[in-house]
Structure formats: C-alpha cells, structure tokens
Design a protein around this nucleic acid. Structure first.
Lengths: 337, 337
DNA sequence: GTGAAAGCGCTAACAC
DNA sequence: GTGTTAGCGCTTTCAC
C-alpha cells in the first residue's frame, strides 16, 4: 500500500516538466549546479521552489548506494556519561552531511545485537559501538555485512575493530594512585555492575594496581546518582572505617557526595572522594570533585571524523588512544591533613 | 558459508536465483510469509541465510513510501532534561518498528530549521519538536511538506500543531505557590535565557502569579549545573536577603544547592530551594530537592504512540496535557520554621 | 501458490 | 549543455 498524505509531493519529473527541461538537468542542478547554464538553473530552481520539491532520500540512496546515515549503539541516553559524546558525534557528523540514529541497548548484548540489525535494516552505513563486549551475533553481523564499525570509550589496538577512546585501566590506575599518594589505605570502591561493561572492568583492574597495604572494599550498584548514594550508604552501614571513596564513574561519585553529606561526614576532611570521568558538573559540586578527565567530547569528534573518512573515502578507521588527565579539586585531601 | 566475491551484497534476485524461485516469491516470504508454501519458504529462507541477505531499506522505502524513520529536534542532548524523554521516545518507537534520528539545535531557531530540512532530506516521516517557538522557515517547511509533526514539552490546545506535554505555566505556579505557602516572600528566581525558550517563558509567567507582597528577583544564567551555581553566587553577591531560591529547572537547582553549601548557607534552615522538573537525581541530593514533577518519560511514550498512530494509520496526533505534581522533599521549609 | 513485469524517484552513462 | 535512457532493489498488480 502506498501511503499518500495530502497532496502527493512533486518529483523530479514534475519539476522537469514545469521548468521545461529534462530530468537529467534537474538532477544536475541538484548535484552539480555549476555544470548547468545559469539561466536554465534559475528556471529549474524556480520550479523546485514553486512545487516545494524535496528530493527522495530513498531514491537517491538506491542509486548512490549511500544513505548518509550512521548508527550508534549506546547503553543509555538517560545518563550524562554518553550525552556529550553523542552530542559531539552528531555535531561533527553534520559537518560531513551525515546523520546519526542512536539506539539504546540498556547494556544488554542481545538487545544490542537486535538493534544493530534494526539499524542495518534502515540502511546505516556505519556503526558506533560502545566497548568491546558484544554478542556473537553482532560480531557475525559486522563481519558478514562488512559494515564500517568503530568502538568508542575503549582503547585496544589489537581489537579486531578500530577502537577510538582512552585507556580505562590507566585512568583507574591514575585515580587509585592519587588516593594512595594522599596516604589513603582503606578504600571503598564504588562501581556499577561490570558483567557486560568492559570499561568498568578495566577501571576496576586499574584500581587493583594498589600496593599490598591498601585495602579495597567493593560496593556495587547502579550507574546512577541514586546508585552511588546507595553504595555509599552500604559502605557506611558496613561499619568499616574508610579513608576514601574511589568511584568508577563521576555519576556515582555525585551520589556518594550527597550520601556522605546526608550522613554528616565531611569531605574531604573526614574522607576523600574520587571520581572518574570529569563530567561538566564535577567542577561545580560542593566540594568540587577530584577526578580523572576522560576526553568524551574529543573522542566523539575524532570518532565521527574517522567514520566520515571511512564511509566517504573508504579509509578504514585506525585506533586512537586519547590521553586522560588527573583533575585534583577539593574532594580529596591528604589523610589526616 | 559461501563467500561472495566483490563487495556487492546479495539482493532479492540473488536469493531468488539461489532458491530457484522468482523475486516475487522472495518478496512474499519477506512481507507475507504465510501466503507462501512452507517448503518454498524454507528454501528461500535457507538461501537468504546462506547469502547473508539484508533487504535494502532504500529500495523498500522507494516502493512503500515509508522510511520508518522519525526525527527529533531538541536543544541539546548534553543535559539530563531531554535525555529521559528521548530515551522513552526511542524505546516506544521501537515497539512499532520505527527508528529515531535526533538532531540538536543548540536552541537556535535557524539551526533548527536547517536541521529539520536535513532530516526531511534523509526521509523522515515525522518530526518531534520542542516547544512552539520556531523559525518561519520551519513552519513553512512543515506546511508545504505536510510532514506529521508533534510538539513536546509544551501544551497549548490551540497551537496549529498538536502539543503533547504539560502546562509549564501551571508548573511554575505550583512551585511558586508552595514557596509562598511556606511563608517565603523574598524569592530569588534562577532561570535560563528565555529568548528562544517558551517552556522557560511559561514557567516564569507562572512564577509571576505571586501575591503583591512577594518580591521576585531574577538571576539568569545557562541551563547547566554550573549555570545554577553561578546564578546563586550572583544572588549571594547582590547582598539582598532571600527566603528562597525558585529555579526554573532542576538542573540549575542542583547548582544552587552546591553553591549554597559552598557558601555555608544551610538548606532548608536558612533558605529554601525549589526545583522544577523532578530529575531522577533530585530525589537523592542532600537535602533532597523539593520540586514539581514533569512526566518526561510518559510524555515521550505518549508522543511516540501518537506519532506511530499518525504515520502508520494516518490518524493525526491530538493535544495531550499531562499532569504535573508537587513533590515536597527536604529542600523547602516554612520560613523561620 | 507462484511468476512476469511494471514501476517507485532518482543517478549516471552516453549521445547529441 | 542538455536530453535519453538504462538501471538501482524492491513491491505489487495481474496472470496463470
């Protein structure tokens, strides 16, 4: 069934007829205007305006083999973590005339594989993936369709797909080292479930670089502000004394900050709190959050550029490792200092 | 598995040839499987699997006139405000086999109009718009193309496009009334620029419902946590005494909370802080934020459903006004109480 | 139940 | 510079 909404819209032939030229000429003013005589072009443009002509993306795509649409698979949008990256990807892609459709996976590999199929069904030319942990089906899909795919938020030069991100383990190490350097020994580690999340797994591995006299106690909860608060409450309820809270993400660190304040525990006087990510709001909390900066925005931009180069010029993306940086603010202090 | 030579992927004809049937039959097993004889269908399905057949969305779209893609124009993704709504839209749309491509406008009407054109160029079947303030070009575009468009985050039954949202002015009124009912008279209003933002404008209008003896002083800054903090700092620096901070959005309220804490001003003992939106984290702050709940998620769901009904069954969306609700938590208290 | 064939709206040779 | 025309991959009558 062909759906006709209101007045059927004008097509190339209609414009050609109105401008008294051939469809080829109309197509030319659309694609290579400078090759058309000025006067002819003017007539065609007038006709297009008159008829409110909008070229059919589908027909265009079927001929060029290009949809100009890319797909991104991310765990969730409802969380500041991916927002700035997606924002950067979308914005940079726009500079190349490319669009982005984002699909959320809820961190479920099966959902991810299913949505990837859906993305391919609508004709995306390339895929942005988060991390390297994926369902076999997705891997097979990428291999069979040979669709350009780049991994973000993770760096591993040896992965079979190009990774454009940062070294999560190193970031974890830096955060841990900062705390240890401050003399903290009894550390509460707050993190989200790592089962399907390799970024978290790597950060936790980085935390494990602690010297033998440092005691790490893990508290796991959801990757939300509320989750962080809950984890802090669990740590407090455990009765164990902690010098510092080390969070696998700023989002949870925010929750930890709130919960400690609620409990009347002064940060950083009584306990230090360390984040990891450097969300925009991390610089504004009270106290301002010490954290490890992750170049989320630049990563998005670089990933978009690499993808554009891939789909436009057939240059496959290459791994990029972006540097992270320690941000010492107010939420961490020398033990007993 | 047969590896195809060249980069060309299998098409209907290839599958038909492999299964020794006609393209029509292959098309049938794709669209109306039950009308095909079981054995034939089995052969076709085997051939499709063997060739890793993926039907071309473009070719499909050109025939059906349907792209199954919708577009959303939102100010930004880098801000919790739209995230849950977009998340809900995307998710609900998925239930109807529809995809979403989101474009960010940075709250610039010209950018919005340009991106809307871009969305139409890639063939979206419908548009989600934020608020009712748009560039003339966009209005003209919507009228000429007759593309289904629904407005979210706003409610106005008389607007020429269906609005699915809430009454921002009423929400503002509720927030203000709560503060006034608590005995507050000197109120610092923290808000983002309202120039291109009718939601904000309406909320401010709601604030103006204050009795004559209430004094409202406005502090404008960016719609971010940092912006809220900055506005609070300005209010504090002004030297004027305030009973309460009334924020046009929770995002800014978070910043206000942080700044007040930094300044050593107890909330709600010394001053009340009122938000508007009820972000997930509002329930976790210290103190927990009193606010007016905006049904962001339900709005996204309802908007998606209305849009699906529109593009699938040609029933135009109708305005929906979702109720807001006062959430009294810990950040507001009776004056001197 | 299945096949043949006519398009859908556009691009890209190739001709003039 | 411009026109003619053959497809692109699929859906959809309409025969059989």
């Amino acid at each position: 069934m062909t759906v006709r909404r209101g007045k059927k819209r004008a097509n190339l032939r209609d414009v050609a007829r109105a401008a008294e030229v051939s469809v080829a000429t109309v197509s030319r003013v659309l694609n290579t205007p400078d090759v058309v005589q000025a006067e002819t072009r003017r007539r065609v443009e007038a006709a297009m305006a008159e008829l409110h002509f909008v070229r059919s993306a589908a027909a265009r795509a079927i001929n060029t083999g290009r949809s100009k649409i890319l797909g991104a698979l991310i765990p969730t949008l409802d969380n500041a973590i991916f927002a700035s990256t997606i924002d950067a990807i979308e914005s940079r892609l726009g500079d190349f005339g490319l669009s982005l459709v984002v699909a959320t996976t809820g961190e479920d590999p099966e959902v991810e594989a299913r949505k990837a199929q859906g993305l391919l069904d609508i004709g995306v030319e390339g895929l942005f993936l988060s991390g390297i942990t994926h369902h076999d089906t997705l891997h097979a899909l990428i291999e069979h369709t040979a669709v350009p795919a780049v991994v973000i938020s993770y760096y591993d030069a040896n992965y079979h797909l190009p990774t454009i991100g940062y070294d999560n383990r190193e970031a974890g190490r830096i955060a841990l080292a900062h705390l240890v350097g401050l003399g903290h020994r009894r550390i509460a580690v707050v993190h989200n479930p790592a089962e399907h999340n390799d970024r978290t797994r790597e950060r936790l591995a980085g935390f494990e670089s602690a010297p033998a006299d440092v005691v790490l106690t893990r508290f796991e909860s959801a990757l939300t502000v509320a989750g962080g608060a809950r984890a802090a409450a669990m740590a407090l309820a455990s009765g164990a004394p902690f010098d510092a809270f080390l969070c696998a993400s700023d989002v949870q660190a925010l929750g930890v900050l709130f919960e400690l304040q609620r409990a009347g525990i002064a940060v950083p006087e009584a306990v230090s709190v360390m984040g990891l990510h450097d969300l925009p709001s991390a610089a504004v909390t009270a106290p301002r959050l010490s954290t490890v900066h992750l170049p989320a925005e630049e990563m998005g931009r670089r990933a978009a550029e690499a993808m554009a180069d891939w789909v436009e010029n057939e240059v496959p993306a290459r791994p990029i490792c972006l540097p992270t940086a320690l941000k010492i603010r107010e939420s961490t202090r020398r033990r007993g200092g």
